[in-house]
Structure formats: structure tokens, C-alpha cells
Nucleic acid binder design. Sequence first.
DNA 1: TTGAAGTGGAGGATCGCTCTCCGTTTATGT
DNA 2: ACATAAACGGAGAGCGATCCTCCACTTCAA
Lengths: 191, 191
Amino acid sequence: MRADAARRREALILAARDVLAERGHDAPLDAIAERAGVGIATLYRNFPTRDDLAHAVARRTLTEAGAAAEHALAAMASDPERAWTEFVGTAVRLRLGALIPALIVESYRELPGDVLEVREDTKARVTELVHTAQRAGLVRDDVQPIEVIMAIARLTRPHVQFVDEVVPALVPRMIAIYLAGLRPDGRPLPH
Amino acid sequence: MRADAARRREALILAARDVLAERGHDAPLDAIAERAGVGIATLYRNFPTRDDLAHAVARRTLTEAGAAAEHALAAMASDPERAWTEFVGTAVRLRLGALIPALIVESYRELPGDVLEVREDTKARVTELVHTAQRAGLVRDDVQPIEVIMAIARLTRPHVQFVDEVVPALVPRMIAIYLAGLRPDGRPLPH
DNA sequence: TTGAAGTGGAGGATCGCTCTCCGTTTATGT
DNA sequence: ACATAAACGGAGAGCGATCCTCCACTTCAA
């Protein structure tokens, strides 16, 4: 593969990650090509179907998230608080939440084998990380990992862009408040 | 106005509230008519433009939310905790969060006068309610009312319906955790 | 320098949503 | 009951947005 072609393919994956996260899984493909600074034909040549592109994004994001979880898991021993919040920050930055629909959706059996594989791997690592955070007293015992991921997904999904201009740094604060609510040293959850 | 016509108009408003909240402000109008159990022509007869319908939904929801805030404000004196959480529950049920984009959007100057009016009225009541909750020690002092509403909006916006089947009652738990995080007796927010 | 690899974007095909038109149905007053 | 104005439903033409191909042109790499 030619070096410039590889560069364009890479740009497409990154552009797709952002655009799909911002405008939904059915965002126009032209918008992705444009964001990547590439012609629409190049997109189609690299990813004949929308799913091919989505799978590439999933592969990439899951791999990176898995690595981040692995890294956090190791750092948990020395500074749990920091490791935990940094992992959450990374998950936000990777737009991990945007993948949830694609990964849980009923048709997930149709995911290619390698995506399924990295999905399970990442899931296992994140689950272990959450359990470790629970043992470290950072997360209440009665929550499940999927809950945490879903909450992050909902809180970070782009919504009304300009609101962030009105109230700066809204999303980080929401996340921080949610994380505070996760702590077992707060009051118990109402029933 | 004929009684059956009034009933259909009412059904349209309620259907629109749900469909617009679930599928976004640009949901197909056919879907709304169908949900209301009514022909598409009936929708157009009652609401010639999409905005007419959206405004009717906004009027309705804001009025009800305002009444709920008023009610909570009164109940705050005897049982603040209960009044506060019940108000939040009502806001969720009314899908108040779904209105945020429509109400904050730059073009909000174009809202009809009466919607603008009820919007300001409701805003004032909710703001007062949040301040009261802060005085009652239920909400940390360093958050603004808009933050709370935005968080509710994000946490409750329909996302991946079937996830609720996988992990039942996900949304109420997210809300509860977020509310727990709002309490000042938790740890302080990281910067 | 050469040709194989790769590119961009115009534009026809397609799809889903909008909105009207009009023959049929229904509520209401007598 | 009946008459009639009021209201209804849904087919389908119109339309705008997105998809996806085709091919003349550009770029990389040996």
C-alpha cells in the first residue's frame, strides 16, 4: 500500500470517529470525507460499505480503550483515584460512548470476528477496572460496569453544541458530578 | 370546535412530545400522526408547520413543568428531599430535557410571545427551586440550575432503547447517582 | 522517467419526507 | 332519525438530500 494512501485511510477513520459521534451513526458519508480532507471516492475505495467504515472505527476505538484500561489497571496500585479519573477522561476523549449503540445493537452477531474479539477483550478489561475501583472505594459496590459506561455515553454525546459556549466546560462538570455520585462515601441511593 | 377534533388535537400534542423526544426535533411528521392514531392530514390541519406543533408541545410541557416546580417549592418547607427528587422525576416524565435545544437555540427570539413568556416563568421557578434545594443542603452551591437541567436532559434522552431491557431501570439509576453527586456532603469536585 | 496506484468530484439514481387534494366518515342540533 | 357542516384519512406527486459510480487526471516510487 502506498504511503499517502495509508495516510488518507487513517484520516478517514479518525474523521469518521468524530463525525459519527457528533452526528449519529447515519451521518452523511460526504461529511466524513470532507472532514478527512479527502474525496468521497477515496472513502468508498477504502470502505465499500458504511459498515466497513464503522467497523474500522470500532476496532480502533476499542483497541485504544482497551489499552487505556490496561494502563489504568496497572496504575491503580499506586494512585487509584488518579488512574480511575484519567481512564474516564480517556474514554470520553476516545468517544467510547458513541460506540455503545453499534456494539450492543441486536445485530451485533453480524460484527466481524475481529471486532467481536477486541470488543470482548476491552469489555473484560474495563469490567476488571471497575471492580478494582470498587475495591479501592472509588465506586459504590451496587453499580455494574455497563451502567457507568452508559452514563458516560449519555453525558458526553454531543447534544447542543452552543450550550457549551453559554456554560463553559459543562460536560467535564457533569462527568465529575456523576463520578462524585458513584462514590460510596456519599449518601446511599434512594431505593 | 367539535369534541372529537379537540381530542385528536390533544393526542397529537402528546404524541409529538414523545416522538420528538425519542427521535429528535426533525422526526418525520408521519411518525407523530401514526403514534397519535390519526391521519397525516389531521396533523397538518391542526398544525400547518412543524414549528406550530413544536410550539404547542413547548407550551404544554413548560406549563406543566412550571406547575410542578411551584408545587415542589411549596413542599420544600416540609420535606425538601422528597420535594426535590419528586420534581426531578416529574421533569423526566415530562421530557423537559428534550425541549432544551428548542428553547436555547439561537433562533429562540423567533419563539411566539406566549411560549417565550411561559418559558421565562418556568425558568424562574426552576431556578428558585434549585436555590432552595441548595439552601436545604441537597445541592452543592457551585452548580447552576442550567447545569442540572442539561444533565437531566442528557441522562434521560432516549438513546438505545433496548439497553433498558438488558439493564433494567438504567435511567432512574443514572439520575439517582447524578443527584447523589450533586449533594454537597460528597467529596468536592475535582477543580 | 514511467506506469501502476491512487485521486476527486460531477451527476444520475434512489430514497424518505413533505404536504395537498378530495372522496368518505362522523358529530351534533333539531 | 336525519341533515349537514365539520372533520377525517391516505394516496401519491413533488422535492431535497444522500448514495455511489465513472473516468479523466494526479502522484508516488522504482
